[in-house]
Amino acid sequence: MELVLEDGTTAASDRFMVAVCTCRRSRTYPFCDTSHRRRRRPGRGRDGAPEEGTP
């Protein structure tokens, strides 16, 4: 799959599905890197959710 960006450049991905960034916050634009996520304030627990993930 090829994405043509506003500046005329293209970004390609051969993944079976592509997550395209629409919030413009991605550091791997035009692809999503989950930077759109809602921010959680300190002190709010995660109820058994891990503090951090890994692949």
Binding site: R39, R40, R41, E51, E52
Partner: peptide, 18 residues
């Protein structure tokens, strides 16, 4: 409900990767 907190990014992250 159990997945929702995993979809949030901490403002002050802690943890091993951090």
């Amino acid at each position: 409900a159990v997945l929702e907190p995993l979809l949030e990014e901490p403002v002050e992250p802690s943890g091993t990767a951090h």
